[in-house]
């Protein structure tokens, strides 16, 4: 049994310990903001925070989350008021929007460890998150904006 804190709530998971967190969040807790995009850790759509740091929930098992704090897009802020979410809306970043929860969680994780990332650091941190609509230019700008830059 794994004890996992999800968005501030204590949960007990008693299923297959190898189940990726992604499916526990989506299929059991009905937290559908975290998306399935590749199942291989190469697209970033499933990004959540594990103790405040971005991880791919499709590559993180329930067992690995035992005793940890998980934050999903639903728990990032009370009503979408995190600086990253606000910047995303300010610049109208999304097109289809499917990858955006993962992008936002990745960006929030970056800014939690580095409040003023330079362009190279933004590119390095965000390059694991794919966007097929091609919103990268605005994603980059929005990370910069959320960091307090222009």
């Amino acid at each position: 049994m794994a004890k996992i804190t999800v968005n501030g709530q204590d949960k007990e998971f008693s299923g297959d310990a190898n189940m990726p967190l992604l499916w526990y969040l989506r299929d059991e807790l009905n937290l559908t903001g975290t998306k399935y995009g590749c199942g291989a850790g190469v697209c970033g759509a499933c990004t959540v925070h594990l103790d405040g740091v971005a991880v791919r929930s499709c590559q993180t098992t329930a067992a690995e989350a035992d005793g940890k704090k998980i934050t999903t897009i639903e728990g990032l802020s009370a009503d979408g008021e995190h600086a990253v979410q606000k910047a995303w809306r300010e610049l109208s970043v999304p097109q289809c929007g499917f990858c955006q929860a993962g992008q936002i969680m990745q960006a929030a994780s970056l800014l939690a460890k580095n409040q003023a990332p330079n362009d190279a650091q933004i590119v390095e941190e965000m390059s694991g998150n794919l966007c097929r609509c091609g919103c990268y230019q605005r994603i980059h700008d929005a990370v910069r904006l959320a960091a307090g830059g222009a």
């Binding site: 937290l31 559908t32 903001g33 975290t34 998306k35 999903t72 897009i73 639903e74 990032l76 802020s77 009503d79 979408g80 979410q85 995303w88 809306r89 109208s92 999304p94 929007g97 499917f98 955006q100 929860a101 936002i104």
Partner: peptide
């Protein structure tokens, strides 16, 4: 836009 940035949008 708000739903997309808060994970509430339904796909």
């Amino acid at each position: 836009l708000h739903d997309i940035t808060t994970g509430k949008a339904i796909y």
